[in-house]
Design a protein around this nucleic acid. Structure first.
Lengths: 239, 239
DNA sequence: CAGTGGTCTAGACCACAGA
DNA sequence: CTGTGGTCTAGACCACTGT
């Protein structure tokens, strides 16, 4: 871990430990830089992380202050927890998901899927449908499409645990980010059957395009959530 | 506008103009820094913005590359358009919303609202319900709570246009960011009546806590959207 | 090896706020 | 005026990649 990340980590700990009074600014950047034996630029970069995470805010000419609400209820962790995959989402809560494979096949993509994955119509894709449960309760149905060429080695064993672990641990690929669209939808028959919900229960659908750090899209997926078991949380900071 | 923002703007324009071939890396940082007559740090900061916006990605040891899909369909603008308020959302599309005030009163907050606004139970809040339409079609019902002390001067005229314009233009306050939760919900009677939807139509609800740049929460709101007229778009970049 | 991006430094000047 | 954060510089070294 590089210097500014170490400093950021130490400062985050100080904040949640109440090391600094939340009624006055934390020490100024020059002072902190001396304490941490680094340049002011590096200190600023470390504090930038905490500002982005919502722990601190700056007032030019005044100083840097603590966001009290962020220290009390540590719900801002969504920023760092905002990774892909249900397995990751649940890690922080001491729960692990189970998976039931509803469909698993390899086929040629439709025009739409091919365009989202930046592949041509001749490149086969995995077509995967899984029911994900937590504590035996159905939570979400995930439809996933991935290019077989980019993400080889998908099998039942992988599908029953975590696709993302396979991608990072077995294939050594790095996930860079994703684009998501979130909408409300009516419950279809598949939802009603497997999510154990009523015809008039709404569904929260998250459409997601995932990208590797080489810029290639590796995943196009739809996650259909029970409306009473899931909500999507985001933090928006203006630049 | 400062230097790195100007450079970033110019580079963004070059990218959408096809100035650089998308099949090879753009010039390296040292070369670009010379072209723009700036230091490498400043050049990097300018490129950082475009990476965050999804236009570029970097490969250590290789270079900086263009995300083709971002250039083609300029849907990544959600990053910069990701501001608060329906008026802002619609600006890019040449449409303007109209508002119908369903309820407008001042009262004392409940425990829950007071805690979200970081005020005590003796501080009165605005309780506002508006129906927002686009081209005469109902789009969303917005329930908004704001402290009367922090955001004075709310009246019918303000409510019929944009609350955010009032906050920034009239009060001179700066919106720093927000926390949002997005969920699916069943249509209540109010939704059915004003959004012109059926009892079994789902609703996309966005709960939002808005913050000023001094760290104070100024808004706690629920926006209930027609499921066929709205979807929420986000971009997630791993650090 | 050379070329790329990633980090870090020491110092400078600017913009803004309060006394 | 002083003290704060915001920006910018010129240069250094490191980490990673492909040749």
């Amino acid at each position: 871990m590089v210097k500014y990340q170490q400093i950021s980590k130490e400062m985050r700990q100080r904040l949640v430990d109440g090391y600094y009074s939340s009624n006055q600014p934390i020490p100024d950047e020059v002072t902190l830089a001396k304490q941490f034996d680094c340049s002011r630029m590096t200190m600023k970069k470390a504090l930038d992380i905490l500002v982005t995470e919502g722990f601190l805010y700056r007032k030019r000419g005044h100083g840097t202050f603590i966001v009290k609400s962020a220290i009390q209820s540590n719900k801002l962790n969504v920023v760092s927890n905002d990774t892909l995959g249900l397995s990751n989402l649940l890690k922080g809560q001491g729960k692990r998901p189970t998976s039931k494979i509803l469909n698993f096949e390899v086929k040629f993509p439709t025009e739409e899927i091919a365009s989202h994955l930046s592949i041509d119509l001749d490149t086969p894709v995995y077509d995967i449908t899984r029911l994900r449960c937590v504590d035996g309760e159905p939570y979400v149905i995930e439809h996933t499409y991935m290019p077989t060429t980019l993400i080889p080695g998908i099998n039942e064993k992988v599908l029953l645990s975590s696709i993302y672990s396979h991608i990072s641990d077995n294939l050594g690929l790095k996930v860079a980010g994703s684009h998501r669209k979130i909408r409300a939808s009516k419950a279809e028959l598949l939802d009603q059957n497997y999510l154990d919900c009523q015809p008039d229960d709404p569904i929260l659908e998250v459409e997601q395009a995932g990208y590797l750090n080489n810029g290639l899209p590796f995943e196009y997926a739809f996650a259909r959530h029970r409306y009473d078991k899931f909500e999507f949380t985001t933090v928006h900071i203006r630049r």
